[in-house]
């Protein structure tokens, strides 16, 4: 069985936010909702400083902290490892949002227009966006990155992977040791975020230096 995972090369990433917007445009996430983010981290003291852009998204953990806490069973793990929220089951209790160590989940009470902040779409495109968002995610529920499962069905890569101007993202099957993703993890000593929590994330990072 395939186990989807993503490898993000921090040596290639420049923190341009391309992934953030690619995700936004793919999923029409409303204002203040970011399924993909780029975090700005900084360490050290002048003049020895290390600023590191860190792209994050749902880590699609093998042991997801969000799944067990869900009282409704809305958060599920597919066979291919993708962690999804079933918007028909979610009640919006947000236990998962609090339990996720990666800040990957967003509760969305209602759709809002980007220009007006209101429920009424301000353009034809906004109408399209609203319709699509409500059909795929609905109101009053928790939403998150789904590894673009709708694109995977069409044999396309996730939108953030496709867009990345630095080509810093490699999507693939982590269970296949021959996949480009597995190969990179091994060759470049990929690491994961907050491994100590036992979540066993499927998003790997290749060190910048």
């Amino acid at each position: 069985m395939v186990r989807y995972g993503l490898v993000i090369d921090l040596k290639r990433c420049t923190g341009c936010f391309g992934c953030v917007i690619a995700c936004k445009a793919e999923h029409q996430t409303p204002p203040k909702v970011f399924w993909a983010k780029v975090l700005r981290s900084e360490s050290g003291k002048y003049p020895v400083v290390n600023r590191q852009p860190l792209p994050v998204l749902c880590m699609h953990c093998k042991e997801p902290a969000c799944k067990d806490v869900c009282p409704t069973g809305a958060t599920k793990q597919r066979e291919d490892g993708i962690v999804v929220v079933d918007n028909k089951l979610c009640v919006g209790c947000r236990y998962c949002v609090v339990a996720c160590p990666y800040g990957a989940r967003y509760f969305v009470e209602k759709w809002k227009d980007y220009f007006t902040g209101k429920d009424q779409p301000s353009s034809k495109y906004a109408e399209y966006a609203k319709k699509k968002w409500l059909a795929e995610n609905d109101r009053g529920v928790v939403t998150k990155c789904n590894f673009c499962s709708e694109r995977l069905e069409k044999d396309l890569k996730p939108a953030c992977v496709e867009a990345c101007p630095a080509e810093a993202r490699t999507f693939g099957d982590l269970d296949d040791p021959e996949s480009e993703a597995s190969r990179l993890i091994k060759k470049r000593r990929g690491f994961r975020l907050k491994e100590e929590l036992g979540t066993d994330p499927c998003v790997y990072y290749l060190p910048s230096r």
Binding site: C16, G18, I21, S122, S123, Y125, A163, C164, P165, E167
Partner: peptide
């Protein structure tokens, strides 16, 4: 562009449909 597209490029939709 090698098939890639940046934050600004994708966001052009929002410029096109800015009320």
């Amino acid at each position: 562009g090698y098939g890639n597209v940046c934050a600004k490029g994708i966001s052009s939709i929002m410029q096109l449909y800015d009320p």
